[in-house]
Design a protein around this nucleic acid. Sequence first.
DNA 1: TCTGATTGTTAGCATTGTCTAACTTTATGC
DNA 2: GCATAAAGTTAGACAATGCTAACAATCAGA
Lengths: 158, 158
Amino acid sequence: MCDTKLMTQRDLATPTPSANDGRPADLRAEAFQGVRDARSRELAEDYVELIAELIHDHGEARPVEIAARLGVRPPTVTKALDRLAREGLITRAKYRSVFLTDEGRALARECRRRHEIVLRFLLSLGLDAETAERDAEGIEHHVSERTLALFAAYASKS
Amino acid sequence: MCDTKLMTQRDLATPTPSANDGRPADLRAEAFQGVRDARSRELAEDYVELIAELIHDHGEARPVEIAARLGVRPPTVTKALDRLAREGLITRAKYRSVFLTDEGRALARECRRRHEIVLRFLLSLGLDAETAERDAEGIEHHVSERTLALFAAYASKS
DNA sequence: TCTGATTGTTAGCATTGTCTAACTTTATGC
DNA sequence: GCATAAAGTTAGACAATGCTAACAATCAGA
């Protein structure tokens, strides 16, 4: 039918990718997009980090334990693990423990590193352990490498 | 580690017998739950904060502008605004600008306060403006009042 | 004023993440 | 070695968030 109409709507939403590079008209739109990206990665990171920890501490990672640690129900874990397997971060067989792939292990290491830097930083600011843990969990997915470097510097300096 | 491998299903499965209802056993489970709560509030907070800003700067908040600033498409904004209206944070009429309710205005103020404290803190750590803005956007929804106080103290001290 | 461009909404789809209920598989313990 | 308990999965619901395509309303300029 009317296919020319989409052109009119298109340009309101066109971010003009190249024009945005030199002089970011809206810094915040970029930031929001970054946050949305981070959000989609968060769950995977939390799972992978936790799985690595369980394997380290208990020798294996079982769905029931993952569910308990994350505070969600087993079916939620099953679905999430399906997704992680699809994405190549873990391997698993039905009714069996979960294992990390090389990629998953690398991601877990990276997450653990970030988590610890953020946690140490918050503690060195003078925050109590419980609040520090809680806030670190939320913050760790949203700090850039640059910020992380400053956090690490501050924590070791103090 | 050999021992842990032989753990039975029952061993792995008992987090806290009695307190499973409202009180997760693990400190981390609590933290994860907090993060999930924060996540469900994030969008509303971002919208409300942005709407307040647009009204302040331009005298009104229009969906097309909200979409551009957030980097999403207009229908996404329509849906989100419907939800905000349902939650009593904004008022609106079809095809018209958006207004904040008293509750929405209060939330916006609170968000702006948090945003600015986090931003000033990151800048005072020595971060560049662009990264600071990006990280603040992600971090602001995940800092406790206690952490915020420490951030504010650090920023004003330096 | 009327017509076309801009803005906004509706409809419909996909994905994610959560749940409960019911089922299947595995492990335990007698 | 079998019955039962625990663990895990499947099915189905629901809400949020995003998208495109298409339709509707508003606005602005000739």
